[in-house]
Each structure stands twice: as C-alpha cells, then as structure tokens.
C-alpha cells in the first residue's frame, strides 16, 4: 500500500516524508559534512571533486554546484540540512527561502515585514487567489 499523503494538494510545499528522505539521503549527508571546517575548505578548493566523493545522483550534484535550492529540495534535500551548505557560503535562511520563491531577496524581506505570505489562496493547488 502506498503511503498516505494528505498534504499532496498543498501548493509550493515539499513535505520531507519517507520517500524524500530516502531519495535525499546522500545529498543531506553531504551537507552535514560541511559542519566541519576542514571539509568546508576542501569543498571550496574544488567543489566538483568534493561532491564526486559522495554517491549522489548527477542531478543532486549539479543542483549543489548551481546552488539551486529548489532542485535540491526536489531531489530529496531538507532545508535544515541544506542550511549547512548556505551557511558555509555565508548565506541566511532568508536568502535560501527567497531564492526558492523566485523573488529577489529584498522583495521577499519586504513581504515578511508586511506580515508574510498570506495563506489566502495558498492552501490548495488550483485554488482561486
């Protein structure tokens, strides 16, 4: 029996469930490795060589090299693990979150100051805004 996913109809949201956790295992463990300074240095020195040490898919590796957080999430990344990657780039959660919405960072910050993204029209896929 397939896993029950009552959240599948929520727009713009990837729930880090069993399927995603399985898919993203090596990507997330790669991110964890960046908690260590020596690994951060080796990664910075040659990103391609460093990601090649991990049994990730090519799509995962390319998403990392491109810093494409949307693709990393789609390939099983979890934002708390990905935070080790953007932290080692000196970037914040706001930067990463904004990049996934497609908004420029200052526009995203402006939206947060105005009270954040409204749930109206954002609860169900296909819902009228």
């Amino acid at each position: 029996m397939a896993l029950f996913k009552p959240y599948a109809d929520i727009p713009g949201t990837t729930v880090f469930d069993a399927d995603m956790a399985r898919k993203g295992y090596h990507l997330n463990q790669f991110c964890m490795s960046l908690m260590k300074e020596e690994n951060r240095q080796r990664f910075r020195a040659d990103e391609r060589a460093y990601v090649d040490e991990w049994p990730m898919t090519e799509a995962q590796k390319q998403a990392v090299l491109d810093r494409d957080y949307t693709r990393m999430i789609a390939n099983g990344g979890n934002v708390y693990f990905l935070s080790k990657l953007f932290a080692s780039d000196g970037k914040t959660f706001v930067h990463a979150a904004a990049s996934m919405t497609g908004m420029p960072e200052d526009e995203y910050k402006e939206m947060m100051l105005r009270g954040g993204r409204s749930p109206e029209g954002n609860r169900y896929i296909g819902e009228k805004k």
Binding site: I10, P11, G12, T13, T14, Y69, T70, I73, V79, F93, A96, A97, A98, M100, T101, G102, Y108, M111, M112, G115, G116, R117, S118, P119, N122
Partner: peptide, 17 residues
Amino acid sequence: MSHQLQGTRAGLINQEW
C-alpha cells in the same frame, strides 16, 4: 509559530491561525 522555509510558498505566515 507559523513559518515555511522552502518551496514557492516560503514566507507563509498565518496570524489568525
């Protein structure tokens, strides 16, 4: 409380809820 850190819906805040 309410927050979403990923996806195109990132930044969601639901004050009423």
